[in-house]
Design a protein around this nucleic acid. Structure first.
Lengths: 342, 342
DNA sequence: CTGTTAGCGCGTTCAG
DNA sequence: CTGAACGCGCTAACAG
């Protein structure tokens, strides 16, 4: 209970108090039955009394394992990153790992710097949404024995085990939902075509159109960076025209806020005047009135899968596949309606 | 460039390659001028060639400093925690510290467990939004030389340096704003009275009323936990009555979504039918139409201040004060209007 | 200015 | 089943 000296108790203190060698104390506390049941219990009791806590640094130096996992994301504003951080943190902690949070702002230099620091810390593993510009660093790390799991975005250069959303299928399902409601002119607001998700969602949209026998009209697509401003600009580009679409598919999550505002500013009522379908669910969409229908990209599932994969690799088994996809799922709420026009 | 052996290069390798003692290499890389400029540069060059990176674990074992900072928050859904995590992470990294992210869900047992683990990791410092039930653990840590900075909520038991929002003043300013617009019946939806912020915001509201010579009506106050459901329930309690308020002050951030929905379900138009003022700003409020006026509690400022304080303590200077307040600021947008009734 | 020596706290050989 | 000795990689005395 009380501290004999002022310092934290060390293994040596425990051994001294128990009148055994340090190594015996070590074995007793490890508890693998490498010591007599009697001394094991006695030493564990003494350790508890002294408030002994093993020094992670010393242990790590010896075992070459820090029990630290790097979590590298672009920010915490994005709901997928948030889910990833919360879930990964919780699950890894349950397995005795701690999470080092690193934010890169999607910038290559910050990412490189971060990765070097993480190597210095001797992290045991890494979950990262890569910028795409440090592929060699990442694959070096991975090959040198530190498992690296990619999430959300694929790094084209590094051949990492990567957990991705099923974006082609999600965008396809969303578009088909709108088509099934009779919409023929569907505006698409989507991410930059330089990103995997941007390209794949556009592809899913096009495929659905094609299967429905509707020709693709590029002027109905507005691509832009992941920001509310893109949604606002998209509204201007898509809605202020002679033949505006009867439905909007917002497959760029961050731009949803801008779209909502763009619609409000034009006094367009959802779903009376226009149907609205968004991508990636957030609590706000469910609470909104009318509640916004979404294609949920499965951020939680991705977080769990990425954690599963990392844990597996940490236990020694190498990856069987190098790409995992998490199914998207359509959540119908109140923002989409049967097309009333002709 | 290339790896001579398969392992990461160690200081010993550098010393060997440079034909100097390990300690010389150490000093040269530290760069404090404790070695001749010539060898310093030579060794730094060799280290770079070998791709040498110091082992943080070994260094920490020696220096008794891990360069790790624990960041303990309840979740990442709350905007204040998010801001704290992003800002603290970024600023601490710039100072050579890494951030261990720990999520407690506001539960005492998880917090206690987390704190023990952080002690095991020999963190150099801690920023925490405490549950309030582990005060002795926290003050022990703080007294034993590991600086602990509290944020957002005060732990009544531990006497930590704490950075708080100026909630009494913020709620006062918000209420007065509504009063100045002529509102006399102002509904308040506020946090649980067991929390500091819940109590202080109610107090600010009451003081503004009192200064305006309006008697306090307890039935106009709905207190509840930090969740959207509270907002919905608050609407039911406050709006479905014979004499509903003409303005709503939502001083429980998480419940805002529920309030927005409650208003929509009652076909109450903001600000025509009712004025709405929220607490704590988020991007959604600015993009919403009508844009929601808020009392910004200054999450970013709190994050910066908490980081400042921690950094100061890390540098050795002890705190002068033990409570810091960050000013709240009223941001007028479009959701409040002059009272039109009698 | 540099080399030698001695640990930091722990796990893990090797003997006994 | 237990103890003694060694080393993980690094910094910080102490000498020279």
């Amino acid at each position: 209970m009380s501290s004999p000296s002022n310092r934290a108790a060390t293994l040596r203190d425990v051994a001294l108090a128990a009148k055994v060698a340090v190594s015996t104390a070590s074995r007793a506390l490890a508890g693998g039955g490498l010591t007599s049941r009697a001394t094991e219990q006695r030493i564990q009791r003494i350790a508890a009394e002294l408030g002994y806590r093993p020094n992670t640094l010393a242990r790590g130096l010896k075992t070459r394992s820090s029990r630290l996992i790097g979590l590298v994301v672009h920010n915490l504003a994005n709901a997928s990153f948030r889910a990833l951080a919360e879930i990964a943190q919780q699950r890894l902690r349950a397995e005795g790992y701690q999470v080092l949070l690193c934010i890169t702002a999607d910038e290559a230099v910050q990412e490189a710097e971060t990765l070097n620091t993480l190597m210095d810390q001797r992290v045991d593993g890494l979950i990262i949404c890569p910028t795409g510009d440090n592929g060699s660093l990442l694959s070096d790390l991975d090959k040198s024995g530190t498992p690296v799991i990619g999430v959300i975005r694929r790094d084209e250069e590094a051949l990492l085990e990567t957990v991705l959303a099923a974006d082609p299928e999600g965008a396809f399902a969303g578009t088909r939902h709108l088509l099934a409601l009779g919409h023929k002119r569907i505006g698409l607001i989507v991410g930059r075509q330089e990103t995997t998700s941007g390209r794949e969602r556009l592809a899913g949209y096009r495929r659905a159109l094609q299967e429905a026998g509707i020709s693709f009209d590029p002027s109905l697509v507005h691509a832009g960076r992941y920001a509310p401003e893109t949604g606002l600009a998209g509204c201007a580009a898509l809605l202020d025209r002679a033949d505006p679409p009867s439905a909007l598919f917002v497959a760029n999550h961050e731009s949803s806020l801008g779209v909502l505002r763009g619609l409000a500013e034009r006094n367009l009522i959802v779903p009376d005047d226009i149907s609205l379908l968004c991508y990636e669910d957030v609590p706000g969409f469910e609470w909104q009135r009318p509640a916004i229908s979404v294609v949920d990209s499965g951020a939680e599932a991705m977080a769990h899968l990425a954690t599963d994969r990392l844990l597996q690799r940490l236990r020694g088994s190498s990856g069987t596949s190098n790409e995992y996809r998490v199914g998207a799922k359509l959540i119908e709420r109140q923002s989409c309606r049967q097309f009333a026009g002709t």
